[in-house]
């Protein structure tokens, strides 16, 4: 250890002036007991301080001495302890303060981390929620779009049919019931110019699951199939037919899906054009 350097560091002066930390106080007291040079220097500084303080001397009031002597008579002297009279007044308060600060800091840090973890977890949850909500929304959008398209389609078909039925070139033909079903009644709307028809089932018995009505056009005595009738929709859409000349329309009950030739025993309605 460089004693000269230690002496010149100013720590001994700091110690004597009371500006040393508790760590420095222990250090000076320990080293001065080991190194005579340090001890000598320290004593010399203390000596200087003592002499300096003597220049500040002011006599206290004379009665103070009596008060003090009277007081100490009732006070027992304490046994020797290691307590050092040298201490740093503010040192401890700073320490406690910094401990308190450090505790506060730790609590703050823990709280922050907790909050961060919480926020992170919440963020993940939100993200998951958002993703599933997005999926649902996409499905709903698609289904909504489908429904809308279907509605638009139906609306277009209804408009088309309305126009067709209102058109001057469209003629209406009544198909009346036969012996098989005298009460039955169907109307066929036919436009020769556009070769389109619409069928309205005014009164036909409900077909079973195995049966379906089929429309025929009779041209020169021969039946030509014009397609099957929908089982539930009693007013058909506008449909194209391949004939530009029809003598009569007839409807028979056929097997489900229709037949190539009509079953005349199950002829329900017929009407001439």
């Amino acid at each position: 250890m460089d004693i000269k350097q230690y002496i010149e560091s100013g720590i001994l002066e700091s110690y004597v002036l009371g500006g040393a930390s508790s760590q420095e106080i222990r250090e000076v007291e320990c080293l001065s007991s080991i190194y005579p040079e340090i001890k000598t220097e320290l004593s010399s500084i203390q000596d200087g301080m003592e002499k300096y303080v003597q220049t500040l001397a002011v006599s206290p009031p004379p009665q103070l001495k009596d008060k003090i002597l009277a007081q100490i008579k009732n006070i027992k002297q304490a046994a020797s302890t290691d307590e050092s009279p040298l201490r740093i007044v503010k040192d401890e308060s700073i320490k406690t303060n910094s401990n308190r600060k450090s505790n506060l800091y730790k609590i703050g840090l823990a709280a922050s981390i907790l909050l961060l973890v919480g926020l992170f977890a919440y963020q993940i949850k939100l993200s998951n929620d958002l993703s599933s909500t997005n999926n649902e929304l996409a499905e709903l959008k698609e289904s909504n779009s489908n429904s809308t398209n279907q509605l638009i389609d139906s609306l277009n078909r209804i408009k088309q049919r309305e126009q067709f039925l209102a058109d001057a070139s469209t003629n209406s033909f009544l198909l009346a019931g036969t012996e098989v079903s005298p009460e039955s009644k169907v109307r066929v709307f036919w436009s020769k110019t556009s070769s389109e028809i619409v069928i309205i089932q005014d009164d036909l018995p409900r077909p079973t699951a195995e049966n379906q009505y089929q429309l025929w056009g009779l041209v020169d005595g021969a039946p030509v199939s014009l397609g099957t009738l929908d089982k539930t929709e009693l007013i058909s859409e506008v449909r194209k037919i391949s004939l530009d000349k029809v003598d009569a329309f007839a409807i028979t009950l056929e097997k489900d899906g229709g037949s190539a030739t009509p079953n005349l025993e199950q002829l329900f309605v017929i009407g001439n054009t």
Partner: peptide, 22 residues
């Protein structure tokens, strides 16, 4: 303070170590 200090000096005289200074 002077009174307090002299009382303390009296009370704690056993803690004085001459090795640490006068």
């Amino acid at each position: 303070i002077l009174q307090e200090c002299f009382v303390k000096i009296w009370e704690k005289i056993n803690t004085y170590e001459k090795g640490k200074g006068s």
